[in-house]
Design a protein around this nucleic acid. Sequence first.
RNA 1: GGCGGAGUAGCUCAGUUGGUUAGAGCAGCGGAAUCAUAAUCCGCGUGUCAGGGGUUCGAAUCCCUCCUCCGCUACCA
Length: 568
Amino acid sequence: MTRTLITSAIPYINGIKHLGNLIGSQLPADLYARYLRARGQEVLFLCATDEHGTPAELAAAKAGKPVAEFCAEMHGVQAEIAKGFRLSFDHFGRSSSPQNHALTQHFAGRLADAGLISEVSEKQVFSHTDNRFLPDRYIEGTCPNCGYDKARGDQCENCTKQLDPTDLIEPRSAISGSTDLEVRETKHLYLRQSELRGQLSDWIESKHDWPILTTSIAKKWLNDGDGLQDRGITRDLDWGVPVKRGDAPWPGMEGKVFYVWFDAPIEYIACAAEAVEEGVISDWERWWRVDKGASDVRYVQFMGKDNVPFHTLSFPATILGSGEPWKLVDYIKSFNYLNYDGGQFSTSQGRGVFMDQALEILPPDYWRWWLLSHAPETSDAEFTWEAFQQDVNKDLADVLGNFVSRITKFCRSKFGEAVPEGEYGPQEEALIADLQVRLIAYQAHMDAIDIRKAASELRAIWVAGNEYLQSAAPWTAFKTDPDRAAAITRMALNLIPFYAGLSAPFIPDAAQAMATGMHTDLIWPEDAASALTTLPAGHVFTVPDVLFAKISDEQREGWAERFSGVRT
RNA sequence: GGCGGAGUAGCUCAGUUGGUUAGAGCAGCGGAAUCAUAAUCCGCGUGUCAGGGGUUCGAAUCCCUCCUCCGCUACCA
């Protein structure tokens, strides 16, 4: 049996993520994990918080808390929200874990031994007032090109000219506004990615089935300009993984930490080690070391397009460069962006709907269904309240929810809350044949992680039940041929556990409610014919509560208003 | 500027080994049914496939050109 390792890009610690972040990695990863588990595969689904870097330190300072404490709290908050969305991580770790410290230092040591680390002395801007080195972006000043007075040290947002911090006129700290800056010499480690360019290029070129979005971004970085550039992997910060060469000190690098993008992907591995400590799994190397049992693992990553360079190049460079048999990713599913009502979702500007707010106003299934059925797979997608209301009401309340409602209530009123007798006839056989074809198509789309197509097929499966009921019309048959009506009712009732099983990856709560109402467990159908005999005559059930209350126009208008501005 | 993605019905989107009258869902219009959350089902689409040019017996699909939107551009993560 194949085993699948699934990782979602790890969300940054500095705040609560918005719906665009959710659909960009965690939610699709969860869908796939749930699907594979339902199909009986062994799955390890990992995610974590990404806790290092300047923004984390600044967010902690703003909150008036020590950074370690801040991160611990925010990790708890994000973990709770993830539960709220039913994200089924086997472990939700932290990039600040001791396991990640050890592994990050281990990789750095291996890379150094392989001659893939160089020490580079460079000049960085230091702010006396802030008592820290400032990343280019955290330096503001007047653009020498256009005169814009809020140009950043990496680029002027007004004229888009790329800048060097030293180009700025009257530079100041974006954190404190202080102009007490000094250019200081500092030494950093660089990962010599350029040495691995050929290897990485061959590897990327061999991935013909990856999304074009993934490979095109990777190839661009491999071939742009002088090709893949070496990358600094250390920073002058307090919070992070201290620079060490394996277990040994690294002379000259005292007081420095590894760059967040160096240690963050390594957390994918460390997270499995954390999971062992948590007792979730017994052996993490069997998922990560090809020489220790991981040769039959298929590893799939999910991420937004902004993360692709790090996952296609930097992290593989780390793994390949180590010379050790770590598992390389087999498939990278990448996503475009979800826009919000004509503009971008923005964490920094507080624009859009954030994960905690979404859960305040509606159950997770509403969000899961809409976001997944509109996943930005081929291009950017757009969230509007009108579309959200319309689609959710139609798909979930009218098509699926009402189907469950109408047949269970019909049965209760005519035959009581137990499945009636009756032989299936040609109409039932036709339905079964149709559903079998659709089941195969649905599984094929899920296997290919073709999310919108899978959602569309699932919806068609729901519609098939309504079509069947409408044409078989048990309410009419009941008047002249109660036995026939009983058979139709039994067929239709059997669709509920069938739908529950197939829908669970998308809408786990509603699926469970359907199964519970029918007094069955959630199961993935082997084939339509056998699945639709799950409930035998005489099987007792309970009419479930309304599965999906509709979103009213008043609610929609209220939310559109509430979320029209900026989160404070 | 460079690179990449996108531009198809009012809306959201399918649709490339080039091939019959370009499809789906939603919205809209008409009808059926009355079991159900006024929920369902059936029927109805003459769209400059962004514009222009080219290759071809044949182009949404290949080539050239051009316009628009978005992203990335390596020290935010």
